[in-house]
Simulated scan of single mutants.
Amino acid sequence: MAVSVSRDLTVQVLRDVNAVKLTDRQQALRAAIQRGEPKCLGVSQVMLGLMVMSYSIPLLFTEFTEVVSFGVPFWSGLTLKVCLVVCVLSTVLSVVAVVIYSVDMGNHPEVACIKTSEDNHCNNQYYATKLSRGLKSTLLLFTLAQTVISSIFCFLLFRQRDSVGQYASLTQAAPSTPTALTPPDLN
């Protein structure tokens, strides 16, 4: 903090260089966030969530397995928020969804093609499990992408929170504009 005293004993508190730099940095950070630099990640996350939910609709008409019973495509596609807590929750739920998809695909392999004697086509269960497995593989891929995006988003939000939080007390302690102090009249 810089202080100047004039001949008439007026004390003037000048702007602190560090406080000015801090204020400028905080304003630049706010401007960058308002410009929407993380918008592409948020849009990607929302689009992946919508794709996961829409691709999972045909699973409702196939055999009910762990993925369908737990509703994995629906709750893993809905965890799309931009705050840090929900982003961390999204990452954790995406990892859980990846595990459930993997276990479900391991527990329910494709059914072998049993050709019928009438028209030399495979039975319906073969086609149903083939469709189900293909959809689950696609959903697993989308959920992995969502996990990566959520993790990156969490990292960026956490880093921004730490870089701003440590300077919050400095801006409250020092005034942002110069103030003039006049000495009391002793006569």
Rank of each mutant, 00 (worst) to 15 (best):
A2W: 10
V3Q: 05
V5D: 02
T10A: 06
V13K: 04
L14P: 00
A19I: 15
T23P: 00
T23D: 09
T23I: 07
Q26C: 02
I33Y: 08
P38L: 06
K39F: 09
K39P: 00
C40A: 10
G42M: 14
S44E: 09
V46F: 13
M51A: 14
P58W: 04
P58H: 03
L59I: 07
L60D: 06
T65D: 15
T65A: 05
G71N: 05
P73M: 04
S76W: 05
G77R: 01
G77S: 03
V82N: 09
C83N: 14
L84I: 14
V88R: 06
L89R: 00
L89A: 06
L89K: 00
V92S: 06
V92F: 09
S94F: 03
V95I: 15
V95Y: 11
Y101C: 01
V103K: 11
V103H: 11
D104N: 12
G106N: 10
G106A: 08
H108K: 08
E110Q: 13
T116D: 12
S117R: 06
S117D: 14
D119R: 15
N120C: 06
C122G: 04
Y126L: 01
A128E: 14
T129S: 13
K130H: 14
K136R: 13
L141A: 09
Q146V: 02
I149P: 03
F153I: 00
Q160R: 13
R161P: 02
S163M: 13
G165K: 12
A168D: 12
S169H: 13
T171L: 15
P175C: 06
S176C: 05
L181R: 04
L186I: 04
